[in-house]
């Protein structure tokens, strides 16, 4: 049997899994993914981490332990420093591989690749070759695997914008080919549902254990949801124009870009920010978004996720927020006249 490489189902799994699994599989490696987040994983993570760490990193540690139990040969642990010029990931992700190794001394050897795109284009190809060399001496094979992986990743981005969840795409389940992006669909004049933006990092948006299945709950309430992963570059850039200084975090750019785009074009009735407790970047991002929404009088709810937040409390807040939005939409004429026109406007500004 070939080499078994474990990929934790946490953090940037929701953004880059397809890239790495495609590459590794083309190298002849068997890719093993940890279980879906569950209570045991979370508790193991909490036990291993330093108290003040954010929940997603704790959960990540739990997933690494799960892979350890699955007896993989290696654990794949990229160091995401930066994935685009002039922007960073979170400092914690920059130190994650070292942190994991020190906190979990007994785990299988780790495969660390440094992803740093700050230097024009970055040395991704160099790092990829370094990784590939572990499995094959054939540079052509590595090159081909890399190209396939990049192509898959591009495809992934396209489908995420169309409104599929990462796991649907990874598992090739329910993959309906849509013609329009979800934003275009939602903007059709005939749709009368309540529309909200759900903004946050991939692991908060799509890990249903961490977010207490918020997307499912909103669906049950007949709310149309736009996540911050569903916007095109140009749309985000137009939202970002409001900032006086470029935001230097990739996630932050997504959240702020989509929040401001929605605000400018009056696409949704309100937004929900999904934020992890003790998340550094989001403590800043949250303030910028909340302030802008408050100034313009558009509702914005921040849900803080941590290991102690009970599901009951979250549902209550969520329901109250949705009720409030519905009430506003039906009752408040001024809201309709000032916000309604572009909602119903067929030539929406996209």
């Amino acid at each position: 049997m070939g080499v078994r490489v474990g990929i934790p189902r946490a953090l940037l799994y929701y953004d880059y899994f397809l890239l790495w699994s495609t590459f590794l599989e083309n190298m002849g490696v068997e890719v093993v993914v940890s279980q879906k987040t569950n209570k045991k994983i979370v508790n193991n993570g909490i036990k291993s981490a330093v108290d003040d760490t954010c929940l997603p990193v704790k959960v990540f540690l739990g997933h690494v332990l799960d892979l350890n139990a699955k007896k993989v040969d290696y654990i794949f642990l990229p160091r995401y420093i930066s994935v685009e010029p002039r922007r960073f990931m979170c400092p914690k992700l920059m130190g994650l591989p070292d942190m994991v190794k020190q906190l979990l001394p007994g785990i299988p050897p780790t495969l660390v690749v440094d992803i740093d795109a700050r230097k024009n284009g970055g040395d991704l190809p160099v790092e990829i070759f370094r990784l590939g060399r572990l499995f094959t001496f054939n540079p052509w094979k590595i090159r081909l695997a890399y190209k396939t992986a990049i192509a898959k990743q591009k495809e992934f981005k396209k489908r995420i914008i169309q409104g599929l969840t990462p796991e649907q795409i990874f598992l090739e389940k329910n993959v309906i080919q849509r013609k329009n992006t979800i934003l275009e669909d939602i903007n059709r004049p005939e749709s009368n549902d309540l529309k909200i933006g759900l903004l946050g990092h991939g692991y908060n948006l799509f890990d249903n254990y961490i977010n207490m299945n918020i997307q499912g709950k909103l669906k049950e309430m007949d709310v149309q949801v736009l996540t911050s992963k569903m916007f095109k570059e140009a749309e985000m850039n137009s939202g970002l124009k409001r900032l006086q200084k470029d935001i230097f975090w990739t996630f932050g750019r997504e959240t702020i870009g989509s929040a401001f785009y929605l605000l400018q074009n009056k696409i949704v009735h309100g937004v929900i920010l999904l934020v992890s407790f003790a998340c550094g970047p989001d403590s800043i991002i949250m303030d910028i978004v909340e302030r802008a929404y408050k100034r313009e009088g558009v509702p914005c709810l921040t849900l803080i996720l941590d290991e102690h937040s009970g599901e009951g409390g979250v549902i209550t807040r969520l329901e109250a927020f949705i009720e409030m939005l519905k009430w506003r939409e039906q009752g408040d004429e001024s809201y309709l006249s000032s916000h309604g026109e572009s909602l119903d406007c067929p030539e929406s500004p996209i």
Binding site: V50, D52, C90, K92, G95, D98, Q102, A278, G280, S283
Partner: peptide, 12 residues
């Protein structure tokens, strides 16, 4: 409290 670089340091 919640300082990102130092939480990494603390973990190590």
């Amino acid at each position: 409290f919640t300082c990102m670089p130092e939480i990494i340091a603390q973990s190590i």
